[in-house]
Design a protein around this nucleic acid. Structure first.
Lengths: 215, 215
DNA sequence: TCCGTTGCTATACATTTGTATAATAATGTG
DNA sequence: CACATTATTATACAAATGTATAGCAACGGA
């Protein structure tokens, strides 16, 4: 019997490939369907190899979760950095970016939700979520502060924090429903809906944020 | 060998008990840990009985999901009905109720997220989510409309709908983070944060909703 | 009080699972 | 080009899983 020919990859490349295969399978078949064998098949690799990179299946799944959330928050931070200019434009672009593709994605929401569902049964997962959430809040706060200052609104840290919590809530909520593509409305409206709401939340004049909407 | 003694229950009672045991186990151990045997153990019943009530395990899990969402939206509708009086008070109480116990619940959020995570892999689940979401939107719209009218704000159906989408987003987003109890802030602040935000979203005078906060 | 119905237990079984280990071949280094 | 290293395949195995089925016992109607 002849063996399958294979390619030796560097540790990082193979490891990342395994993590991405894990996310693909979990997203497609759910946690119940995410067996070691199916993940290995997706990665084009024999099942035994997984134990060469991860001590246990759960280690791999948790690593995949961290990989996912790191990617999401990193992209969010990049979008925030890219949106330089006036404060309102930066904030608007950040919100808009989170509510358009590729952020709007059934794949990502499915995974995000799946892992939140594991929060309670496994302490490791809740740490990952909390860290990602905190980071997102910090990014939002940093974007909110200059907008408040430029508009002569109260900009103390408590206010910033509470506005960030509220605006993160609306972005998250719309991100979820928009990504699930249930057909109840056109998710192309979401950026406008969100920005109009954020204007109100921050008590800014109408149009302050929505006028920065880009097609 | 002596058999376990047991009690014969009516179909509905036993069925409901099985559904609740399913939700308990899924919430506590996640889908991976939710084996037929463990669910039966939780329900105080032998494993074989499950097949007497459900053709397959997946049937049971899906039924449990519907049972969960029915309960959540029914409670939401009850809260909306109970909150009679001026329009602002009704809306405020509805939002507050969704952001305090028992709605704020790690158990409920964990389950909600777990099943969203199965949306993609199994069409049946996404139907349940969509129906529950639509119902929630309709309740919110019905609460929003009289508030707009009483405040001489535009109250056409498009406006109502978009406000409902935005406000559902913020309620959902805060509900999730508040329930996960990650310790980043005190979730007792959430009702005030949400109502203050909703005032802004609807362009109501400050205090219109927050003054109806009850301790 | 008996007895049939059927809710329920108990057991069996083939599959799938995660993990462990031995064998092999791709690769870089001398 | 030989050779050691180790990434990778292949196989094995016990445990857990979903499902099927045989038979017991609780309860209601006669």
């Amino acid at each position: 019997m002849t063996r399958k020919s294979f390619e030796r990859l560097t540790e990082d490349v193979r490891r990342t490939a395994l993590l991405e295969a894990t996310l693909d399978v979990v997203s497609q078949d759910g946690i119940p369907g995410a067996s070691v064998r199916r993940i290995a098949l997706k990665a084009g690799v024999s099942a035994g190899l997984i134990r060469h990179y991860f001590d246990t299946k759960e280690d791999m799944v948790r690593a995949a979760y961290m990989y996912l959330m790191d990617g999401l928050t990193m992209r969010a931070a990049e979008m925030a950095a890219k949106a330089k200019g006036q404060p309102e434009a930066s904030l608007a672009r950040f919100v808009q970016a989170n509510l358009t593709k590729p952020s709007i994605s059934e794949h990502a929401v499915t995974l995000w939700a799946t892992f939140i569902g594991l929060n309670k049964s496994n302490a490791g997962y809740s740490d990952v979520h909390r860290d990602a959430y905190r980071e997102f809040l910090e990014i939002l706060e940093a974007l909110i502060f200059p907008v408040l200052r430029a508009n002569d609104r109260p900009d103390d840290s408590t206010t910033c924090r509470q506005l960030a919590i509220a605006m993160n809530g609306i972005v998250d909520g719309l991100w979820i429903e928009g990504s699930l593509a249930h057909g109840l409305y056109d998710s192309a409206d979401l950026p406008r809906i969100a920005l109009h709401a954020c204007e109100g939340i921050m008590r800014l004049p109408d149009g302050s944020l929505t006028k920065h909407l880009t097609l």
